[in-house]
Amino acid sequence: MHIEDGILSPLACGAWYGVTAAFVVPGIYEIKRRIRENLLYKPFLAMVGVAVFVISAMHFPVPVTGSCSHPCGTALAAIIVGPFATVVISTIVLFFQAVFLGHGGITTIGANTVSMGIAGGISGYLLWKILRAVKCPLWLAAGFAGLVGDLVTYMVTAFELAISLHGNVPLEKQWIIFFMGYAPTQVPLAIAEAVFTSAVLMAMLHRRPDLLSNILQEKGV
């Protein structure tokens, strides 16, 4: 989902930066509020931010398609530190990946944040909330959040490319073309991300349930 510099027009880059800013501002407020509520939120945020950096740069080969791709980790981050805080984390992560790893681009940080941080994180978080509301087990809800968060990230990236570049081709057709460039490799990785999200969340809950009180409140503990 790392769109590189030189593909999107300056207008599109500016528009995606605008959308990102609209989510980063409440994200900063969410972080400030949660730091006041819980002193341990800061190290939590640092740990999750760095984990998202590593996870979203970790390329795995998928032999079925003969190409490599990476998970995102933003659905897990959204469950743990909150959906808007995840947008802030993603923006910082994508900046460092663009500057130091040649991964993504500076002009496309807005577009990449919209796909990974906003769409991926918030879709995973919303699904998590819905599944928990219908008493779905924690591990299953986390797994589905990871799966959907990953796939939505790539669907939105394909949409960002299609809306800018479809020209005379119908938008839906161009969207499908770009998404099919990702999907065959990404589906197995999304399943792996579901397992990873579920396992990490359950490990955290097992070790320190007091740190994830918001999750356990839903569980009724």
Partner: peptide, 24 residues
Amino acid sequence: GVGTDDNVNNLASVAARTEHHPFI
């Protein structure tokens, strides 16, 4: 075994008739 990001960026470059490049 190239990255799908790179694959799709190449596809998008063809559609945009531009060259994509990382910041560094």
